[in-house]
Nucleic acid binder design. Structure first.
Length: 483
RNA sequence: GGCGGCGUACCCAAGUGGCUAAGGGGGAGGUCUGCAAAACCUUUAUGCAGCGGUUCAAAUCCGCUCGCCGCCUCCA
């Protein structure tokens, strides 16, 4: 496997710290508001990495945190007139609601900052003892000048940063780039006892503390959005390595942003779409597919048009499943083949290999999806040749199995066509029940038998106006939701 | 200003030294069909922002130019 490592700026062969085991930490969210599609991207990307490592047979341990104490949470609490921990709880619930819907699995450990105050204090104390940090008016700062490798992740130089720095001038700091490990709390703010008085942890220290506790001093993969490279991950490296004296993380992986009109989607610009808003218009599988159809490090331009294309692609898949299922239910007593058989057979033989090759190359989900659609095209072509017999049913069944298997790594393509159409009916507000549709189909069937084409076409038109497309097949009429 | 990234067809998007430049969406024509739909076939990039260079060979490596974006402040 090759993974792009932000630290070295190259794709590298993945060699775990311990053979057969992978330990990954991904920065979760600060729980002060609803998640937007950008948060979903990060969550989906790391979820797929986890699924793929497990698919490859690794013993995988995944930690994803919640930042549940921070300025934004405190501000939100003031604004809403509730306690800070109620804010955190509320948005943790919202996070789970969204991520569960999107098919993002839970991490093995989901630690919260406030549950690791003891560990945080221990590290801060250790850093002070080692001379890497200093106390000033009840706060503790990390002294960046004392960590010679500061800037190695974000590839910047301390002097350059200071030159045009847009950093708050703070008289208590020895150097403007020094950052808070521990913050003295103001009156009325949440606070914990510490050797430096009442206070709360700085932002970066929690991830060092929680990863150290749950994954150890050195672990394999640490990830998050590309905007966390500096200062968050840079600071984590400084704290952790200064504290343990050991390398912190082997591979740093960062996902790209979602953009709107080419600009980064962000809270401050106000150009964001929440997961809930998008779920009102599109099914969760569509969102997932959309996010995985571009490589995780590239930017993705968000638009309804893009989501509609993703929806059409998924629909193509389920339409094919329906077709293979119809085929498998047919009489297979006669052996009949066609020239496409060889192509399909070859592709089936090397399909998982191609899938793995794509995923092994820095999790190229876009290519993997392309491979799946190649198989879909070949199987459709094969079915057009009207094959029959034991061998063809086996090949068709294998096709379905392989797509399900690889789809499960991406967590897409894992429903029945009926479930997909039901989901579409819901999201597109089709004002008809499945029974209504079946009744119309029956009515049209009588008309067709009587060769009353005008009547038959009228029924079809009526359904089409409501978003239901009919498909006449050899042994009956099927329906689907127009995408 | 410093650092980093991107620019592939009408749109989205893989490909990063050598087989006809994946795949999806859209358009046009066709096969099938009572007519449709779906599916399939043909077609839509002799060319990968532009210009030079390295090489037997480049979308892929190097240089320059243009354009877009990100980080440098909280941010997935």
């Amino acid at each position: 496997m090759r993974i792009y490592n932000t630290l070295t700026g190259k794709k590298e062969e993945f060699v775990p710290v311990e053979p057969g085991k992978v330990k990954m930490y991904a920065c979760g969210v600060t729980v002060y508001d609803n998640c937007h599609i950008g948060h979903a991207r990060s969550a989906v990307v790391f979820d797929v990495m986890r699924r793929y490592f497990k698919y490859k047979g690794y013993d995988f341990r995944y930690v994803r945190n919640f930042t549940d104490i921070d300025d934004k949470i405190i501000n939100r609490a003031k604004q809403d007139g509730i306690a800070w921990n109620e804010v955190a709880e509320k948005y943790i619930d919202a996070y789970y609601r969204d991520m569960d819907t999107l098919g993002i699995g839970r991490a093995d450990v989901e630690p919260k900052a406030t549950e690791h105050i003891r560990e945080i204090i221990d590290i801060v104390k250790g850093l002070v003892d080692k001379g890497h940090a200093y106390e000033a008016e009840g706060s503790v700062y990390f002294e960046v000048q004392k960590f010679s490798e500061y800037g190695k992740l974000s590839k910047r130089d301390l002097d350059d940063m200071l030159a045009g720095a847009r950093v708050d001038v703070d008289e208590r700091k020895k150097n403007p780039m020094d950052f808070a490990l521990w913050k003295a709390s103001k009156q009325g703010e949440p606070a914990w006892e510490s050797p430096w008085g009442l206070g709360r942890p700085g932002w970066h220290i929690e991830c060092s503390a929680m990863s150290l506790k749950h994954l150890g001093e050195t672990f394999d993969i640490h990830g998050g959005g590309a905007d966390l490279i500096f200062p968050h991950h840079e600071n984590e490296i400084a704290q952790s390595e200064a504290y343990t004296g050991k390398p912190f993380v082997k591979y740093w992986v960062h996902n790209g942003f979602i953009t709107v009109d080419k600009e980064k989607m962000s809270k401050s610009l106000g150009n964001f779409f929440t997961i809930q808003e998008i779920l009102n218009k599109f099914d969760a599988e569509v969102i997932r597919f959309f996010l995985l159809s571009t490589h995780y490090r590239s930017p993705i331009e968000f638009s309804d048009e893009q989501l509609r294309e993703a929806e059409a692609s998924i629909d193509r898949y389920y339409t094919t499943v329906l077709r293979t299922r119809d085929f498998l239910s047919q009489d297979q007593s006669k052996d009949k083949t066609n020239p496409e058989e060889k192509n399909l057979e070859d592709l089936l033989t090397k399909f998982t290999e191609k899938f793995s090759a794509a995923m092994d190359d820095d999790f190229n989900t876009a290519l993997a999806i392309g491979n799946i659609f190649e198989l879909i095209r070949v199987v459709n072509k094969y079915l057009d040749g009207k094959p029959s017999g034991k061998k063809s049913s086996e090949m068709i069944a294998k096709t379905n199995d392989l797509i399900m298997e690889t789809g499960s790594v991406l967590n897409i393509f894992n429903r029945t066509p009926e479930e997909w159409y039901r989901a579409l009916m819901k999201v597109k507000n089709i004002g008809l029940s499945e029974e209504d549709i079946q009744m119309q189909i029956n009515e049209r069937k009588s008309a067709r038998e009587a060769k009353d084409w005008a009547k038959a076409d009228a029924v079809r038109k009526e359904l089409e106006d409501k978003g239901i497309i009919l498909e006449d097949k050899k042994d009956g009429t099927g329906w689907k939701v127009r995408v």
